[in-house]
Structures are given as structure tokens and as C-alpha cells.
Computed example of a mutant assay.
Amino acid sequence: MTDINSIGLQKTSAEQLAEKLNELLANYQIFYMNVRGYHWNVKGQDFFQLHEKFEEFYDDLLTKVDEVAERILTLGYTPVHAYSDYVKLSRISEDKNVSDGAACVQGVVKGFQTIIELQREMLTLSEDAGDEGTADQAGQYIREQEKTIWMLNAYLGR
């Protein structure tokens, strides 16, 4: 029996990566639902602009949910898929009944900050394991989301 999985990674490293990716997946799912809520419930002068922007964000988050789950499968493991598991694993809390535009944007910033923190942890693990695929995925996400945070902070006047 070999200690190498089907894509050439140590099985113990792949298992650690899959666990961290499942944590990331849970955070993406909770964050996705928070952003859907902002989209549905935002009120105020910037309604049209924010409503459209939040839709753009949640569409992108849904794509990333799928890509993270597929990476877990590529490593040879099963993505968590129950909402109760997401709530247990997520560092991001459910954000309920938020309708103020600025508060919604602050929620998005906070969510992206948490996601980036997790992806940096993922990046370190994947580099240590020699997993260029996961490292590349995390790096691309981080670069994109850092720019988004900059833009949202500019919107908030920070």
C-alpha cells in the first residue's frame, strides 16, 4: 500500500488539506448566504448600486463554493454538504436582518477578511505539501479578494 494519493501527494498531507478546504467551504457557504441576505434586504440611497454589486458577489461566491468542493474531491475526500456542518465549521457567523447599506458592505468586508485569512492558512499548508493546484487556487482567490476589500473600504470612506 502506498502513502501517495492519485495526484501524487502524501495521503496525510492531502487529508490535512481536505480538512482545511472543508473549513473554507463552510465559510464560503455561510458568507454566500449572508451576501444573498444583503442583496435581498439592503435599503437606502445606494440600493440600486449595492443590490447589483451584492448579486455580483454572491454569484462569484457560488462559483468558488463549487471550485473548493471540487478541489476536495480531487484530493480524494468528500466535501461537507450539510448546513449544520457549515455552521459548526465556519468562523463567519450568520448575519441576520441587516438592511443598512453601509452595514451590509461592512459585513462583506469582514467576510472577505475571514476568507482571506483561511486561504492564507490553506496556502501555507498546500505549499508545505507540494500541492501547486491548491496553492494556485488560493493565491488567485486572495489576489482578487484583496482588491475587492480595497474597493469596498474606499466606498466606506476608509
Results as ranks from 00 to 15, higher is better:
Leu118Val: 00
His39Arg: 05
Lys20Arg: 14
Asp128Met: 05
Gly157Ala: 12
Thr124His: 04
Leu9Thr: 08
Val105Ile: 15
Asp100Met: 04
Leu24Ala: 15
Glu55Leu: 07
Ile115Asn: 01
Leu125Cys: 04
Lys43Met: 07
Phe57Cys: 01
Gln49His: 07
Lys64Ser: 06
Asp60Gly: 12
Gln137Ser: 08
Gly133Arg: 10
Asp3Arg: 13
Tyr77Arg: 10
Phe57His: 07
Val35Arg: 02
Asp131Ala: 13
Ala69Pro: 08
Glu15His: 12
Thr78Trp: 05
Met151Asp: 06
Phe57Ile: 03
Ile149Ala: 09
Lys64Gln: 13
Asn27Ile: 06
Ser99Pro: 03
Glu23Asn: 13
Ser6Val: 05
Arg36Glu: 04
Arg91Cys: 01
Gly101Thr: 05
Trp40Leu: 11
Gln119Leu: 13
Ser13Met: 11
Val87Lys: 08
Asn22Glu: 09
Val35Met: 07
Ser6Lys: 15
Leu24Trp: 02
Glu55His: 08
Trp40Met: 06
Ile92Lys: 01
Gly101Asn: 07
Ala135Phe: 02
Val80Glu: 12
Lys43Thr: 12
Glu132Asp: 15
Arg143Lys: 14
Thr124Leu: 11
Val80Trp: 09
Glu67Val: 05
Ala69Phe: 06
Trp40Asn: 04
Glu23Arg: 14
Asn153Met: 09
Phe57Gly: 00
Val98Arg: 06
Ile149Phe: 05
Val108Gln: 06
Ile92Pro: 02
Gly76Ala: 02
Val68Asn: 11
Ser13His: 15
Leu25Thr: 02
Thr2Gly: 06
His51Arg: 10
Glu117Tyr: 11
Val98Pro: 03
His39Glu: 05
Ile30Gly: 03
Asp3Thr: 13
Leu9Phe: 07
Asn27Ser: 12
Gln113Lys: 12
Leu25Gly: 06
Leu152His: 02
Asp46Asn: 14
Glu52Met: 11
Leu125Phe: 14
Gln49Ser: 12
Gln10Pro: 00
Asp66Gly: 09
Gln113Glu: 15
Asp100Arg: 07
Val68Gln: 07
Val105Thr: 10
Gly157Cys: 02
Lys11Cys: 09
Lys64Tyr: 04
Thr124Cys: 00
Leu73Pro: 00
Tyr32Gln: 08
Lys110Gly: 02
Leu24Arg: 04
Val109Cys: 10
